[in-house]
């Protein structure tokens, strides 16, 4: 337990008052710490640590009652919504009657109506894989209508365009293009993860043609940054053989 507290302590912002108290007496200030910082985030971290490499469903089931308790106790607050969103993402598959998609849509719809002013509703759009093909469009439209936040609109537009852009149906592909132009022009400056909606919408609007990526073609330039933020270009390595490796550690 002490190790966990210390780990959380090390992650805390060094300027908060709770951290100072923690430094003086880590054991005694746990209650203060928990109420000061977000207890839902803390429980999410605990869950993620336990779920890592384990049976995800089992671990999620074990944590469900604690998130449900928080969702009820903290209802109406950002933390209450945080708990609800965890439940939406992790337990949509067994919450109630109906198909998984119907359950997720019903839950998400309730959250949009109850918490319409919360910036956390971006996560409803980020979980777009939960809702199936049928009900997702009205759900995302509802989200755009209900939320006063640009960030939520942008996330919903991005989710909608991601879904439509590979459609063989021309009107749908055209709609994706219109949404992506809107995303680029109106919300381009907003952050999307560690990049911007401008960068992502631009890439989605004009990806390299499959032809340009065939053997025998000059590889298209890549300009980006490495993990330290330093600029890197593929052409920096002209004159050497390059093994270009798209990878992830998952």
């Amino acid at each position: 337990m002490t190790a966990l507290i210390l780990a959380l302590f090390l992650q805390a912002t060094p300027t908060t008052e709770s951290t100072v108290l923690m430094a003086l007496s880590p054991e005694l200030s746990v209650g203060f710490y928990a109420s000061e910082l977000d207890e839902v985030s803390e429980l999410e971290e605990l869950h993620d640590t336990e779920a890592n490499g384990a049976n995800r469903r089992e671990v999620a089931s074990k944590f469900l009652p604690r998130f449900e308790e928080m969702a009820t106790r903290l209802a109406g607050s950002e933390q209450g919504l945080g708990a609800e969103l965890w439940i939406l993402r992790n337990h949509w598959w067994k919450r109630a009657q109906g198909t998984m998609e119907q359950v997720a849509i019903a839950h998400a719809t309730r959250l949009i109506k109850t918490y319409k002013d919360s910036p956390q509703l971006t996560r409803i759009a980020e979980y777009s894989y939960l809702y199936g093909r049928e009900g997702i469009t009205p759900l995302l439209d509802l989200l755009i209508d209900a939320s006063p936040h640009d960030r939520v609109d942008a996330a919903a537009i991005h989710a909608q365009a991601s879904r439509l852009r590979r459609s063989k149906d021309k009107p749908q592909a055209d709609e994706a293009r219109r949404l992506l132009e809107q995303l680029r022009d109106r919300y381009g400056d907003l952050a999307f993860r560690d990049t911007t909606y401008r960068a992502i919408a631009t890439a989605m609007l004009s990806p390299h043609s499959p032809d340009a990526l065939e053997v025998g073609k000059i590889a298209p330039e890549i300009s980006g940054v490495d993990v330290t933020g330093s600029a890197v270009q593929l052409s920096d390595h002209r004159g050497k053989i390059v093994l270009l490796d798209f990878w992830g550690d998952w």
């Binding site: 990806p207 590889a219 890549i222």
Partner: peptide, 22 residues
């Protein structure tokens, strides 16, 4: 943006590019 531009949908995806950039 890079993976999207290159149409990458599976990982790892590998390209071997020669010294001329081909």
């Amino acid at each position: 943006p890079i993976a999207t531009s290159w149409g990458v949908r599976g990982w790892p995806t590998i390209y071997l590019i020669d010294a001329e950039g081909v």
